[in-house]
Design a protein around this nucleic acid. Sequence first.
DNA 1: CTGAAAGCGCTAACAA
DNA 2: TTGTTAGCGCTTTCAG
Lengths: 368, 368
Amino acid sequence: MSKEKHGILLIAEMANVSIGTVDRALHGRGGIKESTRKRILQIAQQIGYSPNLAARALSVARASARIGVCMPKEIRFFYDQLWSGVLDEARRLEQLGIQFESSPVRTLGEGDEEAFKELVESGVQGIVLTAGSPRELTPLINEAEEKGLRVVCVSTDAPESRRSGIVCVEPHLNGCLAGELMGKFVAPGSEVAVVAGMLSTEDHRKKTDGFSERFLQYCPGGKIASVVEGREDEEESYQRTSELLRRFPTLKGIYVNTVNCLPVCRALGEQGFEGKVRLITTDLFVEMAPYFEKGIITASIYQHPYRQGQIAARLIADNLTNKVDIPPKVHLSPGVVMSTNLHLFREMRKVEAKAGEPAFAGRSAVQA
Amino acid sequence: MSKEKHGILLIAEMANVSIGTVDRALHGRGGIKESTRKRILQIAQQIGYSPNLAARALSVARASARIGVCMPKEIRFFYDQLWSGVLDEARRLEQLGIQFESSPVRTLGEGDEEAFKELVESGVQGIVLTAGSPRELTPLINEAEEKGLRVVCVSTDAPESRRSGIVCVEPHLNGCLAGELMGKFVAPGSEVAVVAGMLSTEDHRKKTDGFSERFLQYCPGGKIASVVEGREDEEESYQRTSELLRRFPTLKGIYVNTVNCLPVCRALGEQGFEGKVRLITTDLFVEMAPYFEKGIITASIYQHPYRQGQIAARLIADNLTNKVDIPPKVHLSPGVVMSTNLHLFREMRKVEAKAGEPAFAGRSAVQA
DNA sequence: CTGAAAGCGCTAACAA
DNA sequence: TTGTTAGCGCTTTCAG
């Protein structure tokens, strides 16, 4: 048993030819009689042949494909998860001879043009990109695509460009979900507020719009009392929230559509609003945990950063190795984090101090 | 150029040993002097060695790991998604020379012992299993594990067995999440009810318990008015729900913890309870869509069947090819389906008829 | 037009 | 304790 032949060799035997000939048939190379090629393809079809990519990669020695990654290298929040997703997937794809190359940027939108250019010049065939400055990147992306590179945006889009695909949770939908939830959490006729980052940011505006739209739909007689800008600043967010609570003492809910929710939690807690105001936040990181437990955060809208990274990497790899079309849009459904399921998210895992281990002790993580 | 030596061979030459020795050092295998191991690791470190994964995959996949799949072949609901997850992943893993073999059972727990035995006898090295009849399967699983097979349960567990791992959404947690949601949806002091399949089923009982526990915690003064058994029967579920609504006209919420929710929806709709009773269901399939839109279903707890399948397949494959440990438990966080994000779930996708295409033009799907 | 054979880097079984 | 060697499945070159 288990002595069965495989792949190309099997086909060769079935067709009574050598593996060289099979190879020629399979690759449409010249120097083969049309009839034998037909016969061979026939057989391949029939046994459902599919090539062993590892073997191929090994044989051609050069990587069968190189993929570049251009994403923010921030170590906290969201982007670390996004990277994990890409890297975990990269590790598996390396077994197929696909190489990944990274050209990280410091923070979203900071120097991403240079980083992108660098990748293009290094000759990669595909790029995973968080488009921090879409306007500036668009021409570069178009140029790259023209040259035959596949560009897949992840998390942050460059919608006007001709990128091959985008993997994200739509901001508008993100807001909508928060709105629906809020609408169902609070009593009809309630007043709620939104704490955004900066409304000038496309992303935050869309979330705010989505929220308002859906909230009003699901909360009869409800009202958006105010939309304040926290400007991504700790202190400012805290102040503005406090002010908000003073101005609208009967407020029933707050939606924070940026990652910067801790100041809001603090304000809510210190001023005795816990339990009185439903707080819906965005994204997830360890520091939020205590606020879930105290009941200050009612729910958070989770964007699956790890999965986004994973999917983006896969899309490009599949396209490059198997010619699978890249779907123009992959829109994930956001998750809902509540105190019950909080501990199941990757972000809540204790960072286990992992002693340096030989690079080769292959390990691969699984997302939860 | 390019005539340079690489990898393990390079190290071997630098250390004046054979590649065999290098391999031993790198893998912490026995039978090597501590001093030479040190020296070799030293060098590896220094030249920044990283293994050629393609080569490794090729070398190790020689025994062509074979993995068996034993899951219900039901074409609707949940299990079709579970299969998709496994099969999509299988397709990718086949590129690494891993073979999958299936031994489907008709419905959960029906003839799974035979199916399982068959797989074991066919000589697979790992099995993905939905343990429909855990009691009966346990000895078989133990026997298999004893022989060195890796058994990973998915979705339905055999907790008493020595299976290598389980991938699932915990039923208890499932109920808890529903309970927390319900507790936050309805006003304090509300009465709600549970429609279970059969309380004799472990799974349904745990869900019911979780729900009660959390609901009472999050809804001050709340009460579980009744727990009825639908017994997985259309008509019976309908009748019992109607009766329930008659007996408790002020009911504020219902939690259906089985897939069989349509009769409940019907009852609710026909008797004019839409909007008055918050309905939380379990799982997702197309026929539920209209009820979301009409506002009859407020939310559904989603168990990510596709992902469960995917992960289970990966765990075994990683273990077999890369010796990665199988985590004893992978507990996914259930998703929350609401009308806003409904359309983003796989279950809602139109089934596209795909014409047959060359087997080797590999295609692979991506989950959303 | 077709066959034979040499690797690609790594693992594992067997020798020494 | 270490070295040698036979593959893994595929590409590619060189002979027929």
